[in-house]
Design a protein around this nucleic acid. Structure first.
Lengths: 129, 129, 129, 129
DNA sequence: GTGGTCTAGACCACA
DNA sequence: GTGGTCTAGACCACG
């Protein structure tokens, strides 16, 4: 489920947070679903437990998951205010990439096609119940 | 022309490379145009010359600029093979962001609008001759 | 293991990268083997850590080594696509030197003998397990 | 006759010396033949005269050319002792490259073929009288 | 412990 | 004048 590239320049804990966010966004991880325990994930990925811990704490800070003492970590439902600020952030980043896209000659059609591709992927994955 | 955020997590030299790339992509910096000298930029931004140097060498490695012995650093023209691999990279990154966009409820219209906005920005800036 | 000529025109960091490449090519350094830490090599060679760092990053860029976060630098296995372009480069350089060799009266036999010498060196060194 | 790459990392004066040596070695420039004047070459290549001057002085130092006051620069004949030390230098460099060749999987046949290629090139060029 | 970034300031090579 | 290299030494991020 989680694939890490230990040789990457991106810190392992960040690869983990990004991956979890992605799984949530694609609808693969649902609200209130339990995440693997720190120890389980640590031994499965052969990664230092502190690193897993750091990733989970970061996800909690950003509001993607919540932790119940002694029970584990669970996926949080998307909240309103959160959603707004995330939209604004994403918009900025998208605009930056669009500028690159224009520079490299992408057409509007190509961009739209990418959007639909993402849409389809979400539909498929959400249906795997 | 260059603004830095010294408190950012992103290294200064990386902020610089990103900024220069952006300026090139927006057509503000033209092919064969001379960049500020290492020393000039260093004193202007009150940043160590080594840091500027590092940014310039990184940009050279990536093919965005070239350096002439004892003359300075200059904007490189976009090359063919390079362009292809950059397009592929960008496509992947765009797809990743599109998935987020879908998750946060962006519509295809909003995405298209962002693309056109980027297009307009390039047009405007390129016309400042 | 590493010998530097501080009086050479060739920059120290380049002497280092060349030496490491040579050790890898001769099979003395094996894939996934750990290189001396930046600090260790720095004090051993009485060379500034930054210089070692620069050499290691250059080697990473060229695909000869990889760096693991907080663990150290390791020898990378030779990759396919990389190998092709390196072969082409080497071929050009060899052709240039062959022209010199012809000018200076080297015979085909002498050239072949040099090739076998290199072959033998690699065999010997690789067997030191 | 001389092609320079001003964007190269190799200093222009060094590109010049290498090119002249190559022309001599390939038999295109013959002993006692006159080289272009500093001024002529300077304006032809749009390169600073000092740079040409530096290249010629370097070639003279290494024994490839000699200069006659007020007459110009001329190709020197290859001398005995010189030839010996150059052979030794070249042998070392060839051995280094052969090690790379072995590493990248070149066969003895390929190497021999490169040698013959160089031999043929010299034959052809020498015949253009 | 590891590598990565940055500053301050010196010296050299090139054009 | 330009960029390129190097040292000395500090601080941070990662695991």
């Amino acid at each position: 489920m989680f694939e890490l590239d230990v040789r990457s320049r991106k810190p392992i804990y960040e690869q983990l947070t990004d991956k979890v966010k992605e799984l949530i966004m694609h609808g693969i991880l649902r609200a209130d679903e339990q995440l693997p325990s720190v120890r389980a994930l640590s031994s499965q990925l052969t990664v230092n437990p502190n690193t897993i811990q750091k990733a989970y704490r970061e996800l909690e800070r950003e509001g993607y998951i919540y932790s119940l003492q002694g029970k584990g970590n669970f996926v949080a439902a998307l909240q309103q205010g959160q959603s707004e600020s995330k939209r604004a952030e994403l918009k900025e980043e998208l605009l930056r990439l669009m500028a690159e896209a224009v520079y490299l000659g992408f057409t509007e059609t190509e961009i739209s096609s990418l959007y639909r591709q993402a849409l389809d992927m979400r539909r498929e994955e959400s249906s795997h119940d």
